[in-house]
Write a protein that binds this DNA or RNA. Sequence first.
DNA 1: AGAGTATTCAATTGAATACTTGAATAATAA
DNA 2: TTATTATTCAAGTATTCAATTGAATACTCT
Lengths: 224, 224
Amino acid sequence: MSSPTPKQVLFAHFAAVAKTIGNAHRIDLLQQLAQGEQSVETLARKTGLTVANTSQHLQHLRRAGLVAARRDGTFIYYRLADDAVLDVLAALRRVAERNLAEVEQVVRGYFDNRDAMEPVTREELARRLKTGDVTILDVRPEDEFALAHVPGAINVPLKELEARTAEIDPMKDIIAYCRGAYCVYSYEAVAKLRAKGFRIRRLEDGLPEWKAAGLPVESASKEN
Amino acid sequence: MSSPTPKQVLFAHFAAVAKTIGNAHRIDLLQQLAQGEQSVETLARKTGLTVANTSQHLQHLRRAGLVAARRDGTFIYYRLADDAVLDVLAALRRVAERNLAEVEQVVRGYFDNRDAMEPVTREELARRLKTGDVTILDVRPEDEFALAHVPGAINVPLKELEARTAEIDPMKDIIAYCRGAYCVYSYEAVAKLRAKGFRIRRLEDGLPEWKAAGLPVESASKEN
DNA sequence: AGAGTATTCAATTGAATACTTGAATAATAA
DNA sequence: TTATTATTCAAGTATTCAATTGAATACTCT
């Protein structure tokens, strides 16, 4: 048996990367990291995995070149190694949505029927950012808001929405966003606030897609 | 344990699709199918797998929604279910090339150093197609040429190049192309013909990328 | 109906993967 | 130096995956 050709070597590497993504927990971890870098402990809590298991999955992702890490004291923070990782996930989602009946069904049943919620395009939001005539509501957890958010957004995590509606100007239109596709937070925020008479819609996707489009973001530590 | 959320169900499906791609043989099959639909027997021969094994991998790909099949007499022809499958492969390649040292090394050592071969962009080739001042040389096997090719291309499979150089006008510039990234045929064609004094360069990628860019193709059975 | 061809299926075997658990490691604070 | 916290590693177990082999299936031709 001859030695493998360059093509075979490369396909084996690509297969290894794909196989690494071929685990729902690791996809969840990558989607969490799309919001910004986070520690192992934080990632474990958000995904519901044990710390040991989270760590093992992160090693796997790191060996595959999908994430990178830095140590800060006893904490180790992981981040996406390359924003192009999100392109892989988006491409996978697109193929699955178009070609797997079960996926289409779940998406239609849970997400699309809620699009009586009239998703707002990124372009439209970018335009309204300039005119300042809209409240931008980020319903993600505070730590993710701190990492990065749409400039001028206010942060009311979904869990606190009922308790904090007084903070939201009822005279202005509202656009809510969260982590991205399949994050139910913005759907639920729209439902809750519409029930109280607010004029609210949701952004078509999430913060990572906004950033990938080159649109401006702010974070708690610096402006850009 | 509660029932899975829609997000969890969707991530499980995406993971299953990624896992299906996480095998070098199945990646090879998908790249072969990027050239057009082919029978199990043909795919087995091109990938060096047994027919039974090829068939099993194709079932896996079909269940994942990545390929589709049609029967013609005793032959079953497989094709890509969705051109977006190639987007997944391209995104995987991009991430691997940028983030895995081993991949970068193989690419640099085998492919990029040959880019003293001055790859031609698709746009440039499209322009020169119109002026008709260039020979377009398709060095893929004849059956793939028959499935689809750049209009006006001549087909001299790499294996037959030595024997058929008389068919190539030495007074015209030549642009060679093959299956796509990591297909060595066009690299080798450039090397062989340059050694004989021909003015030849290679297209930056392959026929699938040309098609995906919306550029015209012909096939043996019909024009479009 | 029977033979031939192409393809798929099912069982087996060995390899690979994922989770859990407990131990080990690295950094910090006292 | 010792204790604490965060994280990783290694071993064991259960599950899944891939290739092989032989049988079964589907279609065509005579």
